[in-house]
């Protein structure tokens, strides 16, 4: 923790000089995320696998945020990316990725490309990521950024994510990063039996819980909600 604070403070004052600075900051961020995952020492809490942590350590988050936010890109917090959207807190991205239990041959649908960061993390772990965005400027920016970073296994499109992406369905997993008043029935249909869907619940800067929807082999649906942090709402029950 302290190490990250010093690194962030140092770069906040001096600015990032070169790529190696970003690499160091990214490593510190991964450590930070790991630290918080251990902090949630709840037997039911989501643990973070090495594969997910490796992916988090590989994606160049600073390349996916606006220039004005670049110096904060490896802080463990959400950042504004314009158009009323945010790039999620790295810790939340790691948890969401973990919750869908990604496999190397998985085909994953993402609804809400945003900065492209979540898609990039997923692309490090799965076969292909299909991502849909409803804000034209964000879709364009993410496409350019992800191409520049060399992600060939991400396909994006501009449009309505409510009906999923029929041509590439069914999906092993679906990650919904956009807010919704309900889980779109067409997305549930496009989820493979045994598939998982994850949705963050809460405001743009304040993720409250993560909703995991699981479709059994028989098509039965059950959801589970995870607090990102262990928090017992009663005093004296720790």
């Amino acid at each position: 923790m302290k190490r990250l604070t010093y690194i962030v403070l140092f770069f906040a004052v001096t600015g990032f000089a070169d790529e190696s600075d970003y690499t160091a900051a990214r490593e510190a961020m991964v450590e930070d995320v790991r630290y918080y995952a251990q902090l949630a020492h709840d037997p039911d809490a989501v643990g973070l696998s090495d594969a997910v942590m490796t992916a988090m350590g590989s994606v160049e988050r600073h390349e996916l945020v606006p220039a004005s936010q670049r110096r904060y890109s490896y802080e463990n917090r959400p950042l504004p990316i314009g158009y009323g959207q945010t790039i999620s807190q790295p810790y939340i991205v790691a948890l969401m990725t973990e919750l869908i239990a990604p496999d190397a041959d998985d085909i994953v649908l993402e609804v809400g490309t945003g900065s492209g960061y979540q898609a990039a993390v997923l692309a490090e772990l799965v076969d292909h990521v299909y991502s849909i965005e409803i804000i034209s400027a964000l879709a364009d920016r993410a496409r350019v950024d992800l191409e520049r970073l060399g992600y060939e296994n991400i396909s994006g499109k501009l449009g309505d994510g409510y009906y999923g992406w029929e041509e590439h369905a069914p999906f092993d997993a679906i990650v919904v990063t956009a807010a919704a008043s309900h889980v779109p029935p067409p997305l549930i249909e496009q989820l493979k039996p045994g598939g998982r869907m994850v949705i963050p619940v809460g405001g743009r800067f304040l993720t409250q819980t993560l909703l995991l929807l699981e479709k059994s082999d028989t098509g039965e649906i059950v959801t589970r909600q995870f607090g990102a942090v262990r928090f017992v709402p009663l005093t004296g029950e720790h």
């Binding site: 807190q89 810790y91 939340i92 948890l95 993720t207 819980t209 928090f231």
Partner: peptide, 14 residues
């Protein structure tokens, strides 16, 4: 408590 877990995914508790 909620300030302490702010960056550990607890911001929504504030």
């Amino acid at each position: 408590e909620v300030i302490a877990v702010r960056t550990a995914g607890g911001a929504g508790l504030i």
